[in-house]
Simulated assay, not measured.
Amino acid sequence: MFDSDCASKALGIELVDLGAGHAQTTLTVTEAMVNGYGITHGGYVFLVADTTFALACNSYEDSAVAARADIRYLRPTRVGDVLVATATERSRFGRNGLYDVTVTVGEQVVAEFRGDSRTIPAPPNR
């Protein structure tokens, strides 16, 4: 799935680790990603968490999409910061899954994301 994810790759998201129900990615914040306050626009933090969630819930043979997702921003980040997003599966049952993604910069947690997944029929190119 990540091989075909043009949006994530264009932004510089890199896959670090992938396993059953688990994924880790990184994103380095660039000048194009900050808002008028000089901090990372929340959409980019959400995007790296969402990409990592997608990788984790698609780490099985079933294709999955997001049914719901939300995020809590805890600390601001700035140009040059390396966001590390780590997704962990909390539960998987029937067509549903529940995943938590923690986004850090160094030792500091900057955001917590939770996503619900739903399996779908495999797309034709998968």
Rank of each mutant, 00 (worst) to 15 (best):
V79A: 04
L74W: 11
S59H: 06
A85E: 09
A87S: 13
S91Q: 15
S91W: 05
A67H: 09
V65F: 05
S59C: 07
A87G: 09
S63M: 09
A54M: 06
R92F: 06
V82P: 00
Y44V: 05
F53M: 04
R72H: 13
T40W: 02
A64T: 14
V84H: 01
G80W: 09
V48I: 14
S91F: 07
V48G: 00
L83E: 01
E61G: 10
D70V: 03
A69D: 03
T86K: 12
N58K: 08
A87R: 08
R78Q: 13
S59W: 06
V82S: 07
V79L: 02
T52Q: 09
A56Y: 05
D50G: 05
L55R: 10
T77W: 10
T86W: 00
L74A: 08
D81W: 05
V45F: 01
A87C: 10
V45I: 15
A67L: 15
V82H: 04
A69K: 02
S63T: 12
V48Q: 04
A66K: 02
A69G: 15
T86I: 10
L47V: 00
D62P: 00
A66R: 04
A64C: 15
A69R: 02
Y73R: 07
V45K: 00
S91K: 15
D50Y: 04
L47E: 08
Y60F: 12
D81G: 06
G43K: 05
V48M: 01
E61P: 10
A56T: 09
D62W: 10
T86P: 03
Y44I: 10
I71F: 11
T86S: 13
V79C: 09
D62G: 08
D70Y: 09
T40Y: 01
T40K: 05
V82N: 03
I71E: 05
D62I: 01
I71T: 11
P76D: 11
T52C: 12
R78V: 13
R90E: 15
D81K: 04
G43Q: 10
S91C: 07
A54E: 02
R75F: 08
E61Y: 01
V48F: 01
A54V: 02
A54Y: 04
F46S: 06
V84Q: 11
N58G: 09
P76I: 09
A85V: 05
I71C: 08
A64N: 08
R75V: 11
A87E: 12
D70I: 02
R90G: 12
L55Q: 06
L74D: 12
R78S: 12
S63L: 03
P76R: 12
F46V: 02
A66Y: 02
D81T: 04
H41N: 14
S59D: 06
V45T: 14
N58E: 05
E89K: 13
D50W: 01
D70G: 15
D81L: 04
C57Q: 13
E89L: 10
L74T: 09
S91T: 14
Y44S: 03
A85K: 06
T40H: 03
V79N: 10
S91Y: 06
R92A: 13
T40A: 13
V65E: 09
T40V: 13
D81R: 07
V84C: 12
R78C: 08
S59L: 05
D70P: 07
N58W: 06
S63A: 15
V45P: 00
